[in-house]
Design a protein around this nucleic acid. Structure first.
Lengths: 192, 192
DNA sequence: GTAAATATAGACAGGTTCGTCTAGAATTGC
DNA sequence: GCAATTCTAGACGAACCTGTCTATATTTAC
């Protein structure tokens, strides 16, 4: 028996979640109907409503998955042995790379907040992600600048995401990445 | 004849635009149907489609008006005799005030970009606003930091808007306002 | 082996949306 | 005064949406 992992047959739930993630993110949440999702996932409508009682539940589940995936992605490129300034700059650079690769369609959570203002479960998923984001940036900074710097870097990260979405180019993000690097670096030096 | 300005009877077009602005901004663009707008404006459907050939045209017109109104508002609170650092900080403070007043529902242009990704006229209105925004921030900075600082402050302003929308509180915006003030101030000093 | 859970295909109801159209009334420009 | 523009009220078509339902089939658990 080869060491390849036996690929478990994708359950309907997983197929739905994967397809929903792709369509919600690339075409928008409201622009993506249930029928489109189940057709592309190759799953019956009954199965969809068996796993998710409503579209809102599916959106919320998508966002929870997205938060987990985001944390995993940013951790994968995080060199924890590097200086805080470089770790933070790396977070921004990774975003710029995504823009250059043409795979960026805005922050999934900002998009959801705007597209689904009247869905409590969706808003809850967004709040939960915001906490994860805050904690991760605090982790990257590892004490430099204290809580105020965490807050400010978070705002700047929001700006990088929004600006990338609206302009479609990575230039501004790369510039701000360097800016943040110098900012954190000087704070660290002042603190030392 | 008294000196009171004779209030011109609001034309249908103006009533539609005002009503659309209020509903689009407070409830969202996709969540606001044509029928709701004409009902609240007290205008017949035929009149609406006489002035605006489609909903997209109405949205684009709304955004153009919004860009003009935004520039007027920020200019009204802009003390051109103040230092660049204070003028820029004022821009952010005004946003924080709007959040505190409960009148803030996100950047109308970011909202439109996310809600209407497939409407060329809407996207054009957004691009036009981005130019206005860039020019205004450049005007506030009046040379301090050059083009790189203009770009970075614009990104931070995007972040303040997004963060205000997602968190719903003004605290982060006030913090970043002070941060930007110090940033611009130190750049101006270094330049002098 | 049997029962429960999960799956399929798709019709269907009830709602919403945008945009068109009719038929006529008020207003405006000149 | 008369014609062109702007307006009203609302029915209507066609398309879309979510969520329910039937009726049957496959898979899983024990």
């Amino acid at each position: 028996m080869p060491t390849t992992t036996t690929q478990a047959p994708l359950t309907s739930r997983t197929k739905l979640l994967n397809t929903a993630a792709e369509l919600f993110y690339s075409h928008g949440i409201n622009a993506t109907g249930i029928d489109t999702i189940i057709a592309q996932a190759g799953v019956a409508k009954g199965s969809m409503y068996h796993h998710f009682p409503s579209k809102e539940a599916l959106i919320a589940a998508y966002l929870h998955e997205e938060a987990d995936a985001w944390l995993e992605r940013v951790r994968a490129v995080d060199d924890t042995s590097a200086a805080p300034a470089d770790r933070v700059a790396q977070l921004f650079s990774a975003l710029a790379d995504q823009v250059d690769a043409g795979k960026f369609h805005g922050c999934p959570f900002t998009n959801a907040a705007i597209e689904c203002p009247d869905m409590p479960d969706v808003q809850a998923a967004i709040v939960r992600y915001r906490r994860v984001l805050h904690l991760h940036i605090a982790d990257l900074l590892s004490g430099v600048g204290g809580e105020p710097l965490v807050a400010n870097v978070t705002v700047i990260y929001d700006g990088a995401l929004t600006s990338a979405k609206l302009t479609g180019v990575a230039g501004g993000v790369r510039e701000i990445a360097e800016f943040v690097r110098r900012l954190v670096s000087s704070q660290a030096q002042a603190q030392a």
